[in-house]
Design a binder for these strands. Structure first.
Lengths: 199, 199
DNA sequence: TTTCATTAATTGAACGTTCAATAAAAAAAT
DNA sequence: ATTTTTTTATTGAACGTTCAATTAATGAAA
């Protein structure tokens, strides 16, 4: 029963944050979304903070899995292919629009003042940077690779931020195209030519 | 007396949000920061929401002014110069790190669920896009210009988001360099050569 | 019956708002 | 100039509401 309830409550948390924002996402509202009583949250997560932390953890895990799966499925081992997979994985993110995205942004803002969330967010950020940096380094000199990784990471965050903010106006395909184009420009800048130009 | 108090309270709001986040920024804490009593907030702003809206308005005005001032000071009327001024202005933003930045991000998240803030944020976003788009259009074909504007806008947001999140690790100069490099790549992509390469 | 899962009622703290009272400043009258 | 009146600025306490957490009671399963 425990794993079922935990998942229900995590999903309900995202739904509630998507609906009214983190500030108004009370334990009663979350519990109502999950179809259970409020007390059960303290029982399974020790309190509201525990539930919020578990929810952020799940989002990060989902993101990590989405990237890893696409990289595992690669036939091409080129840096461009790996970076492409990272981009695709980040824009999957259990739908860039929708509950997960708004929840992510809410946690992002909240992590500025909650050490626990900040740590999670930091680890995730470093992983993205390390992965990008490593792949760029296979082609670009050290400083160039470092800049490229930071630039692309910023662009991914920025595009996704816009997705969370205006889900209706957001075109996920256009976002992926922009990120890949930027990646290609970064690589081309140092003599690398892509084998298969993106559509 | 009124304009003085209003400014004090707006500054105190940013200080409080910088300190403990939007969720914990109570009117008592804000009032204490300003050295006045809590009741005065309702007197001058009609309530907490009024104060928050006024604070966001001020941040947007400051940003708008920072960009406008740099564009007015341009000697060169080239698209590249204008876009450069927009970048510089956006990374001024009354210091990308510090209270204003955290307040901005807090409002950004909050605007997903508060129509008033959403409207302010939307107008600001459209102005950035329109300005960038117009300048790119002077050199690039329509679709290319549209993509370039969206890409650069996303990169600016992404870089700045990272500044708000990790003020200590953030290098404003590096951020400006990344944005300008990206801009140059976008322009160079269609035969345009910059007159003065950035340092 | 004993244990596990859940609920519903309750508690105390914290919140934003309101309001009557006060203090300070300005204006008017003497 | 001095006093009186009016306006403005501000306070601090009280109110009603809402929240997260806790507790005791209830139901189901083993």
């Amino acid at each position: 029963m425990e794993p079922i309830r935990r998942q229900q409550l995590i999903d309900a948390t995202m739904a509630a944050i998507d609906e009214v924002g983190l500030g108004e996402a009370t334990i009663m509202r979350i519990a109502r979304h999950a179809g259970v009583s409020a007390g059960i949250i303290s029982h399974y997560f020790g309190g509201k903070d525990g539930l919020l932390e578990a929810t952020m953890r799940q989002i990060l895990t989902d993101l990590s899995n989405a990237v890893a799966a696409r990289r595992r499925a690669l036939k091409d081992d080129s840096p461009r292919a790996h970076i492409g997979a990272i981009i695709e994985g980040n824009f999957d993110r259990s739908q860039v629009t929708g509950p997960a995205a708004k929840t992510w942004l809410a946690f992002w803002a909240s992590s500025m003042h909650k050490p626990t969330l900040q740590r999670l967010q930091y680890v995730n950020d470093r992983r993205l940077y390390a992965n990008l940096s490593y792949q760029f380094r296979r082609i670009l000199p050290r400083d160039e690779a470092r800049n490229a990784a930071q630039g692309l990471a910023a662009m991914i965050d920025g595009l996704w931020l816009r997705g969370a903010l205006a889900p209706d106006a957001f075109d996920a395909e256009a976002a992926r195209y922009l990120a890949r184009s930027y990646c290609d420009q970064l690589l081309a800048h140092h003599g690398y030519t892509s084998t298969t130009p993106h559509a």
